[in-house]
Nucleic acid binder design. Sequence first.
RNA 1: GGCUCGGUAGCUCAGUUGGUAGAGCAGAGGAUUGAAAAUCCUUGUGUCGGCGGUUCAAUUCCGUCCCGAGCCA
Length: 302
Amino acid sequence: MGASIKDPKKKCIFVVGPTASGKSAWALEMARKYNGSIVNIDSVQFYKGLLIGSAAPTEAEKMQAPHYLYSYVDAPREMTAGEYLKDFYALTQTDIKFPLFIVGGTGFYIQALEKGMFNVEPIPEHFRKDIEEELASKGPGDLFDELMLKDPNSKIHINDHYRLVRAIEIIRYTGQIPSELKANPETNKNEFAFDYIKVGFNFEKNVFEGNVKSRTEKMIEAGIVEETLGFKNQGFENWAPLNSVGYKETLKYLREGKSQQWLSEAITQSTMKLIKKQKTWFRRDNTILWSNQSDSLSVFLS
RNA sequence: GGCUCGGUAGCUCAGUUGGUAGAGCAGAGGAUUGAAAAUCCUUGUGUCGGCGGUUCAAUUCCGUCCCGAGCCA
C-alpha cells in the first residue's frame, strides 16, 4: 500500500448503493463479461448461515463468476472494518482474477477500504468492558467530560455511547487522540491500493417500495424464520449480526408470537429505513458514477 | 333497549383540578475511522368525535347525538 505505484492491470470497481437496487445482478453480468471476480463488501453477507435475510447470492449465481468474502465468518465471531481490510488485501495477494467488482451497500466499510483507517493497536476486551461498566453505573457524563478534555475537537455526541466508549478506549489505552489520528496524514494515509471507480445504483422511493415488499415476501417464503430459529436455538440470540434488518424483526416475531403479517410489514419498514440511511450515506459522495453513466466502466477498463 | 369504558398527531396512547396539548413509534433531514443492516442527532398546529349549554375563556364541566369495545336484558 502507501506510496507504491499502482499496478495498471489490477483494477477495481466498487458497486455501491442501497439494498435492493440491483447492484449484484449488474456486477455479476459485468464480472462475466470482463472475466473478473466479485468481492463482497456487505456487512451481513460476510457471515456464514445468514443467507436468506441478507439476500446473499445463491449457489447458482456464485457459479457464474468467482465470489469472495461471502459467508465465511462463523458465529459467534463478529467482523470489524479493520479485519475486513486485512482479509481483502490478503485476498489480493492470491491469484484472484481482476478486475474486482466490490459489491455492497455498507458505506462504512467502503469508506474504510477506499480511504483507509488509522492504525490503533488491538485493545484487550476487558479494557472496553470496564469502560462500559463505568458508563452503565455512572452514566455518560464523566466519560464525556474526559473526552472533551483530551479530545476537544471530537464531534461525538454524549448519547452516542458506542462511539464514546470507543474514543475513551483509544485515549486511555493508547494515549492517542482519535480526532488527531483521523486528521493526521502520517497516521491515516493508507488509501486504496488499486485503480478504481465507484458505480452507484439508486431508485426513487416508490420503486424501492415495490421491490422491497416482494423481496420481503420471498424471504419469508424461503424460510428466514427457520434460518433465524437455527441461530436462536444454538444460543446466538445476542450475536450482533442478528440485530440487523430482517433478523431483528424475526427474533421479535419468535419471542413475542407476532403474526406473519406483522413480520412482513416490520421487515419491509426496516428495510425502507435502511435504504434511506444508505441513500444519505452515498448522497454526500460526489465521486460516485451513477449507473446511467455506466459506459464509464468500459472506458475505465480499456 | 339499559349500564360501563373509550373516541386527542399517520399509529399506540399520556395530559389539561377550565386559560386551545405532549411522548413513543412511523415519516423527513443529518452524522458516521475497528458492532455500521449497528449507533446517534435534529424535526410534532392536531376542527383534543359532532352539535348545543354554562363561563371572560371549554379539548377539559353539563346536555345531547354519532362511532367502537364490553357487560346486562
